[in-house]
Simulated assay, not measured.
Amino acid sequence: MPTLVIASLFAGAVGLQTLLAHRHQTPVGGPYALIDSTSHPTTQTRFAGRQTLIYFGYTHCLDVCPLTLATVAQAYTLLPPGMQRPVPLFITLDPERDRPEDVGLYTRRFSPEIIGLTGTVAQIDAVARAFHVTSHVTMDAMANHDMGDGRKGDYRIDHSSVLYLMDGQNHLQAILPADSSPAAVARALTPYLAKR
């Protein structure tokens, strides 16, 4: 297994343990104001009355993010029929590179159900803090290269990697490890689902 994948999975496991240890002391989640793939403002009220399954990542991620989104897409095919499925949300941690159209193209590669969200640096920082997401930018030789459209070249973002199941009022219901199998994700979600 590549070193980057191992490091990302370790960061996800540590993030999950930290969240589970402190979730009763410090609330996880909260209001957010972001932008969807069609550049429309999106807040938690858009999903009022619906559960959401939230994952934080970025479109230039080479390993854990695509694996997680593929896992979610497969898990949804395994959920019991007649149950209302949570709205899957992908929130970028890389707003400087991930424009609205980028997150839309990226999420559609995995499932048309997954809604990609981005925003300003301040908006992303605020929602990441609310969900206790940890991230660290690692620069490389191309980090300061201007791509010609105001965006910078390649860099990596090491980040915690978990799935947040939120209820219809945007309150945390469960935290799922992102490195679970599709069947494990489906099993973990099923007890929380309501009939349509």
Rank of each mutant, 00 (worst) to 15 (best):
A174E: 05
V133E: 11
E101A: 14
N144R: 15
A143V: 14
G29I: 08
T3Q: 07
R109C: 11
D140P: 02
C65W: 02
H145E: 15
Q84P: 11
L67K: 04
L20E: 15
Q84A: 09
D140N: 15
Q51F: 03
G82H: 03
V28R: 13
I115L: 10
G82S: 01
Q17A: 14
Y55M: 07
T92R: 03
T52P: 11
R46A: 08
P88E: 01
Y76F: 07
H22P: 08
S180E: 09
V14C: 09
H60L: 00
K195L: 06
A194I: 04
F131R: 14
T59M: 01
P27V: 07
L53Y: 04
E101W: 14
Y192V: 14
P100D: 11
P100I: 07
P182F: 03
F47W: 09
G29C: 10
P81M: 02
I6F: 07
D149S: 15
Q169R: 15
H40F: 06
P95T: 05
V127L: 13
H145V: 15
Q74C: 00
H24K: 10
M1I: 13
A48L: 11
T107A: 04
P86H: 00
H171W: 11
S39R: 14
R187I: 03
T52E: 09
P31H: 05
F90E: 00
L79A: 04
T68W: 00
R109M: 14
F56L: 07
G119N: 07
I35A: 02
A174V: 14
A174L: 09
I124Y: 14
L9P: 03
V121P: 08
R85H: 12
S181G: 06
R109Y: 14
D94P: 01
L172Y: 02
G148S: 12
T3I: 10
M142V: 13
Q169G: 08
G148Y: 04
S37L: 06
A73V: 03
F10R: 12
P100T: 14
L89M: 00
K152Q: 14
C65E: 00
G29N: 10
Y106H: 05
Y55C: 08
L4Q: 09
H171G: 08
T45I: 11
A186G: 04
D125K: 13
G82N: 05
R129M: 11
I114M: 07
A33H: 11
I91D: 01
R156H: 15
L176Q: 04
L105C: 10
D158G: 07
L193E: 04
L20A: 10
Q123A: 15
L19D: 05
L89W: 02
L69G: 03
H22I: 06
A178Q: 05
K152V: 02
L16H: 04
T38A: 12
Q173S: 10
